[in-house]
Write a protein that binds this DNA or RNA. Structure first.
Ligand SMILES: [Mn+2]
Ligand SMILES: [Mn+2]
Ligand SMILES: [Mn+2]
Ligand SMILES: [Mn+2]
Lengths: 215, 215
DNA sequence: TTCAATATTTAGACAAAACTAAAAATATGT
DNA sequence: ACATATTTTTAGTTTTGTCTAAATATTGAA
């Protein structure tokens, strides 16, 4: 299994989760910043290996072995991100690029020992769930901050957008995972929300509020 | 810089250290388990990039930038080996293969933070010196156990042969880095040596004794 | 010194993963 | 329904790193 093949499986996994039904060629090409013709080539190869279901012009879906492989790569990615933040003092906006490389290291012992060394974490620095050794994901019962009613209070457990600019915005405004957030008021005009974290009151745009997972 | 290019530079570095003068094509091919024709191709490319000195049929040597790059890969290899043993409970015969992969991860911050996390170790699990951030290697003033005089006592600080079978042999006989070893007697016939570690007396063949670095 | 053995390079091929440009299939709007 | 727009695939090329087989250079022994 090459790094490129692993990256394609991961892409299909993420796209399956954010769409309904089959994943199409152009969507994969966009996601991977490559060309549709390259996607077709790779999709054929992965289909021959039994990792993708593929019929010409009909889009693709992961097979059971394909899903398993994708989850194993995601497990590695998220464990490495956790390692970088917890042990090597990286900030949450610096880890993704390095984890994109580390996720392809082949050694079952390495990743299981790393998991143990980190204390079997359930989520990565962005709040995304970490699959266990068997590929099992813990169900996340979360709701977006933008959808919570006025006066509700809940804990921020994840970010939907993991871009550096969004993470920097949160850092600048001292919003972090684990923070208890109370919804004070919602503006009907622009769907922005007034919130309180500890003693601090903040006014968040809908764009921000709809990228924070709460529990 | 591709992984393959890095591996060639590392190979030339190691061969320069174990030979005198220019490194020849066949030696590189043997060391890398590849074919001489492949070596010629790569050596041309690295020479065009200014990393190797190369004239047809005359062998190669590392340039200053080539040496610097080789040392940076070796630094990563040895720091990762140390991490695996110190933090993830790998044994010293399991780390090399994984480190061969990890040494190619590109992130200066990653490796410098790892160095710091490990407490700036001076040597890897096999006793090989770890270059610092600037590529400086600490001079090793060691001698082989097989060359020490009778009655001398010194500390085992490294292994010359790092093969799994040799490392297993040492584990089985409870010989480890840091052990104080006294030479009791040398057999003139086969150059084997009788030694003492703590209360234990052992009889080592010349083959074994000439693969242990002492200080 | 000469020629055979050895070492090295060249020539040509291949596989992987990407690309461009063109062809083919599918979807859509009137 | 049918023409047009969009999506997807195919055909052919490129780059990287490998290989085999053949050619060429160097070495060294008689
Ligand atoms: Mn990530
Ligand atoms: Mn993440
Ligand atoms: Mn090693
Ligand atoms: Mn080592």
């Amino acid at each position: 299994m090459t790094q490129s093949e692993e990256n394609y499986l991961k892409a299909v996994y993420h796209l399956e989760g954010s769409q309904m039904g089959k994943v199409n060629t152009n969507a994969i090409a966009d996601y991977m910043r490559t060309k549709p013709s390259s996607v077709t080539d790779m999709v054929k190869k992965l289909s021959e290996k039994g990792l993708l279901n593929y019929k010409r012009y009909q889009g693709v879906s992961l097979t059971v072995p394909g899903t398993k492989k994708a989850l194993s790569v995601i497990r590695k990615h998220r464990l490495w991100e956790t390692f970088l933040v917890e042990k090597l003092d990286f900030s949450w906006d610096e880890v993704h690029e390095v984890a994109e490389q580390l996720e392809h290291i082949e050694s079952e012992k390495l990743i299981d020992q790393l998991d143990s060394f980190l204390g079997f974490p359930k989520a990565d620095p962005h709040g995304d769930p970490i699959p266990d050794k068997n590929g099992e994901l813990e169900e996340q019962h979360t709701r977006l901050l933008s959808l919570l009613p006025v006066n509700s209070s809940s804990i921020c457990v994840g970010v939907r957008d993991t871009s550096v600019s969004f993470l920097n915005y949160l850092d600048k405004n001292k919003i972090a995972l684990g923070d208890q957030i109370q919804v004070l008021e919602k503006e009907a005009f622009d769907d922005s929300v007034h919130i309180q974290i500890g003693e601090r009151k903040l006014h968040l745009s809908n764009r921000i509020a709809s990228n924070l997972f709460m529990k």
